[in-house]
Every structure is written in structure tokens, then in C-alpha cells.
Amino acid sequence: MTRWAIDIDRDDITQAVVSDAPEQPLAEGEIEVAVELFAMTANNVTYAALGKPMGFLGPDAGYWDFFGDRGAPGRLPVWGFARVTRSTVPGLAEGEELYGYWPLASHAVLRPERVGAVGFVDAMPRRQALPAFYNRYQRVSALDDYDVADRDYWPVFRPLYLTGWLIADQLFDEQENLAQVIATAASSKTALGFAHAMREQTKRPLLIGLTSPGSAAFVAETGLYDRVVTYDAVGEIAIGGETALIDFAGNPAVAAEVAARLDESLTFAMGVGKTHWEATGEGPRMAFFFAPARIEKRGAEWGGDAFRAAIGESWGRFMRDVRDLTRLDRREGADGALVAYREAVTGTADPRASVIVAGLA
């Protein structure tokens, strides 16, 4: 099947099937791209779990809204590379390679506006009320800090390392007296990026990785955390000094147990992801991290060039370490994409693997 899409049940994200996606005629001002390479990580599970409007992306917006109309099956957003296959837009020729946010499908249709040397913004009507950060597409030829040798790692880590770096930056900016930081879902790619960014600081708090028993060995092997604690051993976390909880798991029961253990020592809690998407219950009150807002803040304070330079330098150091942290696991086509999604959503993916999918097998 050369043209396909993965249809996901919006009410039960474990239900997903491959569907045929025939070529559609292009309207004036539109382009079609073939999605060549993308990643499948726990972050994509967060997108699915927050697919419906939940107030996070806006009062009436969710992650399903990027690539599907209400009432249609959910199309999961993924990060990666695509190539223009058809174009009615001057300045975007067939063969142009792009980096950005795509549907879990072999092809996508976009409506570029503000086309320039760096890239463009997708102006599809359904995306107008969604955060602009996700609507920007970059020409690969104009990507900052891109090295073709790192191509396979870009879809996996570039957006997630940026998120982790921004969280670490916010902690050092706003929480100066922390004695320790606890990261849940410590094996997730975003948490690994966060831990790497934290360890770059010469004066930093103790970093504790909270994870499942099955992932504990891998998390310890990364060397990114000062201590690894499993979810069934929260009572072993030391109490003393100001502590922050960075919650990548989104499991209210785990967060509540940590809060009960630390009591007044827990001075800051931030929600980041929903990798434990099936978990329910009441957890402690926490701020919710939103990367686009932090990018806007630092861009305004430092200026765009200084901000990009800081990210680029840190990213370069991470790229030198990434091959020791995970191994690449390459999948092919619709069937490969479906299996990768099912592994991610059921929590059976190997934490040591960085899963990438070639869209056109």
C-alpha cells in the first residue's frame, strides 16, 4: 500500500487500523508531501491521550485537531521529515525536503503561507486556532544545527530534547534553591533530554529518575540520573530540602504518593506528559509545562539568535552522547507504523530503542 493512514479511535486510543488514503486533488495554494521518516515515542502517546479538547491547547482544541476534522478518526501527530511531491505554491518545488509536524500517514496536504528562505506556516483553516509553534515547517536546507549524520535521530530527539532543555532552563530560572528534582517516566525520551540538560549545569540539584522496575536497569545505565527509584519504592526517596517533581508520566496516583512522601519538602510540581495515559485519579496540583510559551519568553528576553545559539550548543553536546543512550530501531511502511504505535500505546516498547519509521516502504 503506497498511500495509507493510521485511523485511531478517539474514544479508545488502543484501537488503530491502517486505512487506504487515495490521492486527492490539490487546491490552488496547496502542496502534497510524502512523509519519509518520523519517530514513534512516548510523546506521541501524550498527543493521543490529549487528543480531545482538554483546555491545554486552547478552550476548544486538542491534538486530533491538527490533522483531522471532528467526527473523523484520529490522526496522530508525529515529528519528522517529508518531501514535496506535488505543489501549486511558488517557491516550494517538488523534491523540497521539509522538517516538521505530520500526520501518522504516508502523505499530507498543507496550505503554506509566509513562504520564505527558512520555511513556511501551514494555514489550513482547522489549524488557525492551534498554537503557531506546531504549524511551522522548515526547509531541511535551512535547519539550524542539522547534520546529515544525525538525520535518524532528529525525529526522535530534536523536539523532545528542546522540551527537556526548556524545562531545565525554567527550573534554573525560577527555582533557585532546589535540593533535588524527581523525574517520573525517567526512561522516556523527553525525560532523558531533560536529565542531560540538567547535568550540564555545574551547580545543580540531585536528580532522581522514577521509573518502572522493568526500565530501572536501562535508566541507571544512561548515567544521567544520580539515583534511580522504582514506582514501588517511592518510600525510599529521601526527605530534605526543597524538591521539584517533573511529571512526564501523568499518573495521578504516582504523583500523589510522591507528594505524600515529601509533604512540605515538595515545593514545585510540573506536569509535562501523559505517558501513563490510562491512569486516573486525583493527584497534587501542579503547573503544566507548555514549550511554545517558554520559547516565546526566552526569545523575547535573549533575542532569537542568542536563544538558538544556546539550544544549538547544548544539542550538539547531546548528539555526541545520544548513540550511547539508545539504539535505532527502524520500521517500514504502514504495517511498521501500526506496530510501533501499538507498542508505544501499550507500554511494551523497548526503552533502549529509538523507533523511527520510513513512511514509504
Rank of each mutant, 00 (worst) to 15 (best):
H276P: 00
A48P: 05
W277S: 03
A39L: 09
F289H: 09
S19V: 13
A334C: 07
A259S: 14
L143Y: 08
R342F: 02
A353C: 10
G336C: 05
F318H: 04
L50H: 12
G359C: 05
I356S: 09
P284K: 04
A233F: 02
E23Y: 00
E23W: 01
T184I: 06
Y99C: 01
L92G: 09
L245P: 01
L57C: 06
A300M: 11
L162R: 13
W302T: 09
G51A: 09
G223M: 05
D11Q: 14
F288N: 07
A21S: 14
G299Y: 00
A72R: 09
D350E: 12
T46N: 04
Y146R: 13
K52V: 08
V258N: 02
F318G: 02
P155W: 12
V219S: 02
G193M: 03
V228L: 10
L57T: 04
A183H: 06
L26I: 05
A197S: 12
G271R: 00
P131V: 01
A253E: 15
T267A: 05
G95K: 02
P351W: 00
L37P: 11
G281L: 01
A179V: 08
N44H: 10
A337F: 08
Y134M: 13
P284V: 09
G100D: 12
E176L: 15
N177T: 15
